[in-house]
Amino acid sequence: MSFIAIDELKLSYGDNNVLKNISLNIEEGELVTLLGPSGCGKSTLLRVLAGLEVFQEGELYLDGEEISNLPSKDRNVGFVFQSYALFPNMTVYENIAFGLTIKKLPKTEINQKVMAVLRLVNLEDKADYYPDQLSGGQQQRISLARSLVTEPKVLLLDEPLSALDAKIRKQLQMDIRKLQKQLGITMIFVTHDQEEAMILSDRVIVMNEGKIVQQATPQELYAQPKTHFVASFIGNYNILTSEQLKQLHPAFTGKSGKHSYAIRSETIQIKPIHGENVLSFPAHLDDYTVLGSTIRCYYTAGTLKLTVDVLNSEINISELAKTTDLYIHHDHIVPIDM
């Protein structure tokens, strides 16, 4: 059995079915992200694992043990809240030591562990500060340290970085990933930011409306979205039906049973591709925006609108022609479920 196993979990608030039959396995040492739009039940799932939420049906296993009826305090699960939830009346040191004092560890050992974990998050000099004397990023690092110091079996993080500004966020993403690898700890990380999920995780679990719609490595997810929802949520895909594709290129024959296709915008080329299995068709450039390293171009082909990302280094903006041919390799046309 997997280190964490969730089996046919169902949870509802009155008539509102928030989690619909969730089954999920997570291995020891894995970093998994739960990704999905607001209100899809990510936090709820995480809180169920932590024992903070009551559910109706299903089973939960952690390290081989059924934990459904175990109270939070006995689960040995760490939790990092979006709002940090540091104890305002305690110093950084006291906050981190809290879990260890509860376990009645000897003072010297507590001291050792607290200082070690403070070193780990790079905040040794802030031991005597109170939480409100620290920046948001520092507070979240303390919160992380407080959860890590009790050596939980799994660390659950509920959008820990969403209250922080972009730069600190990037930095902390790297820090968390590094820490996780270094300590080999199992983590479940909730986010609604697909980029964050891609950067961090071994495996991404995409959720929508209380269901898991796809689980895959970041690379797989990016290259092979399984459904319309995933494709549109993950980002820059053009989603077309087989009829629309036939309009572009009458010779196109779809795979049987599939009616929709996702085409990543950077796989559409404005320079000819040679070889077999290439679709090509004329298109008209409506507009473009420079995103930095890429230029996002908006084309119309027949009645269809297409988004195409072109590398900035590959082309000079002034060379972008008003009318041009576009090329797509068959391999980049990914069949998806609606």
């Binding site: 932590a50 903070l52 939790f79 809240f81 939830a85 104890f87 305002p88 509860i102 959860s147």
Partner: peptide
Amino acid sequence: KNLMEAADLLGASKFIAFVKIILPN
């Protein structure tokens, strides 16, 4: 509510959490 959940997950009983965290705050 948030503070109590945090204390809970760190292994504190409700009573300890109330006395050591909620009351002082």
